[in-house]
Each structure stands twice: as C-alpha cells, then as structure tokens.
C-alpha cells in the first residue's frame, strides 16, 4: 500500500465518530459501570431506573393481559368467617383433605399485653412468572394467554408434584378424585366462563375483603384500589420473583 493510498483511507481515529455516537458509547459505559456499582446512584445516566420493575404494583398500562384478572385483599377486614372457603369447596368440589383457598392468622403484640389478630386469606396468586408453570414437564399447567389465569389440564398431569414443591404459596394439592393436581383458577370453569363476573369466594364474602377484577381496566375497582393514594400495597413472598397477582392492602 502506497502512502497516497493510505491517505485516502477513512481515518479510524476518534475524529470521525459523530457526537451522538460518542455520546451513546459514553452513556453505555456509564450505564454499565453504574449498573455494576449499584445502579442509578453512582451512574450519571438513569439505567431505566424510573421504570418500577422491582415494585410489586406495575405501572398503569403495564399489565400483560386483558382482562388481567387479579384479586385485592383488604386484609384487616377479614373476620375469618370462612364463608369463602365453604363457597369454594361447594363450587369447585374441593375434597375434604384439600383446599384452594384458606385463611391464615397473624398476630402482633400491642401495648399492655394485648394482641391484634389479622386474618390473612391466601389462594393461588396467578403469578406473572409462575414457578409451577416453569417446572411442569408436560405443560399440564399454564398461564392462560387471554386472562392470565394459571390453569390445569388434569388429563395431562402425570402427578410428579413438582409444581407443588415449586409453588411459594402452597396453592396446589393433589386431588385423588381426578388423579391430578388441583388449584384455584378464579372459578374460570365454574363461574367466569358462564358469564359471572366474580369468583365464589368473592361472592360469599360478607365483609368485602376480596375484590376481584381486571387490572388492565383502569375503571375497575381492583385497579383503583391498588393505585389509590395513601394505600399500602404488598404481595406475599415477593423475593421469589414470581410476580404475584393477589395484592394485599391496608385500606
């Protein structure tokens, strides 16, 4: 290669890089170093920190399904009358040894030796990232593409019970009568598909503890409840990364 040919070549030094490209590159570096140094605190760029991906309540418009069925539990109103359990058992023919939903009891010490009891209804959380669905070898359980409900196909179930070990919420049990794992499906087969708007447990609740609805609908009660001001919203066992769709609130 001759000298004059060499001179005609495009320079590979930094001078030919456009300023946007350079900025992009720098940003990338900062984002990466920032990320490694612990996120947005040390980074000069935002690294999408505004996106509340780690919170339990998604941004409006970020609900992946429509209808995005979910349940909001107004926990402190629960009085453990267990009408929900009875209604569930009757509607979904739950055997005596199993349950799809149940009530747990929490206790907190108050002053002067008193205690405050809180009843905590639990059920399948119809997670956005359901561990049970991931582990099923035969796709006998899956997240319904339309409603986001985690459903079961009993005839596909081989009974390995891995979904039961994987579920962080103890929502599954093996139903001998159908030789398959059984779980809450928001009464999809027994009520929703027949035109009813809520689940059996919701209908049975005398204290308006359980609210069922479509989170993708900003006019729905569930949406309004978990996006209301001055409300504490939490989910159970968020550390498992399952992204549950049963929300607990203190209002």
């Amino acid at each position: 290669m001759k000298i004059d040919e060499l001179e005609q070549l495009e320079s590979e030094d930094l001078s030919t890089i456009t300023s946007t490209e350079r900025r992009k590159f720098l940003k990338m570096g900062l984002a990466i170093t920032g990320l490694y140094l612990g996120g947005s605190v040390l980074s000069l760029t935002t690294v999408r920190s505004a996106h509340a991906s780690s919170g339990v309540v998604p941004e409006p418009g970020q609900y992946p399904y429509n209808p995005h069925y979910s349940m909001v539990i107004r926990e402190k109103l629960c009085i453990d009358c267990e009408r929900c359990k009875a209604a569930c058992v009757e509607t979904n023919s739950v055997p005596e040894y199993g349950f799809r939903t149940t009530i747990l009891e929490r206790r907190r010490a108050l002053t002067a030796g008193e205690h405050e009891t809180t009843f905590m209804p639990v059920l399948c959380n119809h997670c956005n990232r359901p561990p049970c669905v991931r582990v099923c070898p035969t796709t006998a359980t899956w997240k319904d593409k339309e409603t986001g409900i985690v459903v079961m196909n009993p005839s596909r179930c081989i009974g390995c019970k891995t979904c039961m070990t994987a579920c962080p919420y103890n929502a599954r049990y093996f139903k001998e009568e159908i030789r398959a794992v059984d779980k809450c499906n928001f009464c999809y087969d027994t009520r929703l598909s027949k035109g009813k708007k809520d689940t059996a447990c919701v209908e049975a609740c005398p204290a308006d503890v359980r609210i069922f609805g479509n989170l993708a609908d900003t006019e729905s009660r569930v949406f309004k409840l978990i996006h209301a001001p001055d409300t504490m919203v939490w989910v159970l066992r968020p550390e498992t990364g399952a992204l549950p769709n049963v929300y607990y609130i203190n209002a």
Partner: peptide
C-alpha cells in the same frame, strides 16, 4: 409419580 403411565405420551 401418581400417573406414571401418562408419562411417555405426555
């Protein structure tokens, strides 16, 4: 496995 016979097909 409670329904092992379903395994090969499923």
């Amino acid at each position: 496995i409670e329904n092992s016979w379903r395994m090969p097909v499923n």
